[in-house]
């Protein structure tokens, strides 16, 4: 199939960017979207042009590196998958595809379609862990966990940190990402110990980094490649609310 690609090109964070049109020919319908971009890049290198920079790694939908905003949707038109899992048979011959980077203040563009998502790491560092050291742990079966709770924790934990929720949200809010981590630990007895500090610290870090506020449009859930439910956001709100009510005033 032949395609026209309208791609955002930006040499670096501080320089201005613009859309550039490219043509690619004879793309196999069985190729993945990123393989189609590989073809384009190979073509660009041969023609002495600068190849398009984009993040990618595992190409099987789990590392969370790929991050393209395709025709107005993060990770393209299909539900529940990442860009690397989308195949070209999803597009029509002759179609024009607009490819943009994730847009959010805390995700500055590094180059072209590559953005800096270290804001997510900073949020995790603010409390997305259980403070246990290595070794000396009780037996793994010492505390039974109801299967349903463990399953909900797993649903939340399946977040790949790609940032599609932020990209999809009209407010560039990171609530689904933060809620997924808060919710995972809230469902597990091991996570309860630090639950109050965790939710407060992670939320305040999220705000500080400049992510927008949640307005419950649920675009995040609709575009999440792991289909993480907004019920986790509600759980986080609940955890936050009760932690604020219960915890002692900070000195």
């Amino acid at each position: 199939m032949d395609l026209t690609l309208k791609i955002w090109r930006q040499p670096s964070t501080d320089e201005k960017g613009k859309f550039v049109d490219y043509q690619v020919q004879d793309i196999s319908a069985d190729a993945s979207f990123l393989e189609m971009l590989d073809v384009l890049n190979e073509q660009l290198v041969v023609n002495d042009e600068d190849p398009v920079a984009f993040d990618h790694d595992c190409r099987e939908g789990i590392c969370g590196a790929c991050s393209l905003y395709i025709n107005g949707r993060p990770h393209g038109p299909d539900k529940g998958i990442t860009t690397c899992q989308m195949h070209m048979r999803r597009f029509k011959d002759g179609e024009t595809i607009v490819i943009e980077p994730w847009r959010a203040k805390p995700f500055p563009v590094i180059k072209d379609l590559m953005v800096d998502r270290t804001a997510f790491d900073e949020i995790i560092r603010a409390g997305g862990y259980i403070s246990v050291g290595t070794g000396g742990m009780p037996d793994a079966n010492a505390i039974p966990i109801p299967k349903r709770d463990a399953d909900i924790a797993m649903d939340a934990a399946s977040c790949i940190g790609c940032g599609a929720c932020v990209a999809a949200c009209k407010n560039a809010s990171a609530m689904l990402f933060v809620a997924a981590k808060v919710s995972q630990f809230a469902m597990l007895p091991q996570g309860k110990v630090e639950a109050r500090e965790r939710v407060q610290n992670m939320v305040s870090k999220m705000d500080e980094l400049g992510f927008g506020n949640c307005s419950n449009t649920y675009a995040c859930e609709a575009e999440c490649p792991k289909e993480i439910s907004v019920s986790h956001i509600a759980r986080m709100n609940r955890e936050f609310f009760s932690s604020k009510l219960i915890s002692e005033k900070e000195k």
């Binding site: 862990y129 259980i130 246990v132 290595t134 070794g135 742990m137 009780p138 037996d139 793994a140 079966n141 039974p144 966990i145 109801p146 299967k147 463990a150 399953d151 924790a153 797993m154 934990a157 995972q184 630990f185 469902m187 597990l188 091991q190 996570g191």
Partner: peptide, 22 residues
């Protein structure tokens, strides 16, 4: 065995049976 204990303590949501055990 210590690895499994460690991971459970870190909040890794391993699959469980209905009795709540791994």
């Amino acid at each position: 065995n210590a690895i499994i204990d460690q991971c459970v303590a870190q909040g890794v949501p391993f699959a469980r049976e209905y009795g709540g055990l791994l």
